[in-house]
Structure formats: C-alpha cells, structure tokens
C-alpha cells in the first residue's frame, strides 16, 4: 500500500479543518483543545496539534491530508508535516487582511528552501467583503505562476477544485 501526503496550511482560522472535513472519506482526526491564548478571540476551539483526513485512491494507494496547526508556537510541527509531501495548499481567510503577513510567513517557510508545488486558496469567498483572488495575489505579492483560487472550504466541490488545481501543478513537475 502506497501513501502520499498533501499538507493544508494557513493562519489561525483560515479554514484548514473545514477544508479537510469537506473532502475526507473518514471522520477527520482533529486534536483540538480549548484555546488558551488570543486565538480564543477568534474561535472557541482551535487546532493545537493537527487535522488528519484520508482519501482512498485505489486498493494500493491512499492520499493523506494533514492540516498544520495555526499558532506560531507549533511551527516545529510544520517541518515534520512537510517532509515528503506531494504538494501544499495555503489557505487564506479572504476577509481578514490582518492575517496576510502571517500567510506570507507560512509561504516563506514552506516554499523558500524547496521547490514545493503549492496553490493559494482564497477561502471564505462567500462572505461579504472577501478580497478577490486577484486582490489577494497583489496583497500577498505572489508571482504570476502561483495559482490563487477562489474557495469556500465548507463546500466539497470548491475543495475538490482546489485539490485538482494543485494536482495539475504537481503533474507539470512530475516525471514520466
């Protein structure tokens, strides 16, 4: 049985848990605890360890989805999670520009040293005052080759589209 891994990252409350829940075939394993720092101002429960989802591709192949913890104090987890990953989805809460700097920090961590295939998902596009993908590209100063995709993490079809777009990027970089 071969397993491959994708990582879903983003700032606190970007929608990582919801994203994985929307597509996973198993009940998502979330090690959530009551928030003890300023994240409790944003949501009551926040991810302090990780989310884990799974999609069976075939009898001999499984895709694992890992959500990274949002808070800075869990940065060390990012290294572990990113090892051997196939690709990366960076989720952004399009309604909260105060998280854009943190998003850039995350992109920088995952991408600066390695040629990691990744896409940026502009989440919460169904909310009023959401910044559009084009506006997010400018705000995050992303190069033209990086895909910035509209996303509503609660909707399975939207999540599917983001994963497919990431897979097309991976496909371009893959070998015969």
């Amino acid at each position: 049985m071969q397993t491959v891994k994708m990582v879903i990252s983003g700032a606190v409350n970007a929608g990582k848990t919801e994203f994985i829940k929307a597509i996973s075939e198993i009940e998502v394993v979330s090690t959530e605890r009551r928030a003890t720092d300023d994240t409790k101002l944003i949501k009551k429960e926040t991810t302090v360890a990780m989310d884990f989802g799974r999609i069976a591709i075939a009898d001999d192949l499984v895709l694992h989805l890992f959500g990274t913890p949002g808070q800075k104090r869990f940065d060390f987890m990012w290294e572990i999670l990113s090892e051997g990953m196939l690709g990366l989805v960076i989720l952004v809460d399009s309604t909260r520009p105060e998280t854009f700097r943190e998003t850039n920090r995350i992109i920088d961590f995952f991408v600066s040293y390695r040629d990691t295939p990744y896409v940026v998902a502009a989440n919460k596009q169904d909310k009023p005052n959401a910044w559009s993908p084009d506006e997010l590209r400018l705000a995050l100063r992303l190069p033209p080759h990086v895909k910035v995709l509209p996303c509503v993490a609660a909707e399975r079809e939207s999540v599917k589209q983001v994963l497919l777009e990431l897979l097309y990027v991976i496909l371009q970089q893959s070998e015969e």
Partner: peptide, 9 residues
C-alpha cells in the same frame, strides 16, 4: 529536510 519527492505522472 528532504526535497519533495519526484512523483510519477
């Protein structure tokens, strides 16, 4: 830290 794996198409 490992490079991302080169996967087959």
């Amino acid at each position: 830290m490992a490079e991302p794996p080169r996967v087959k198409r």
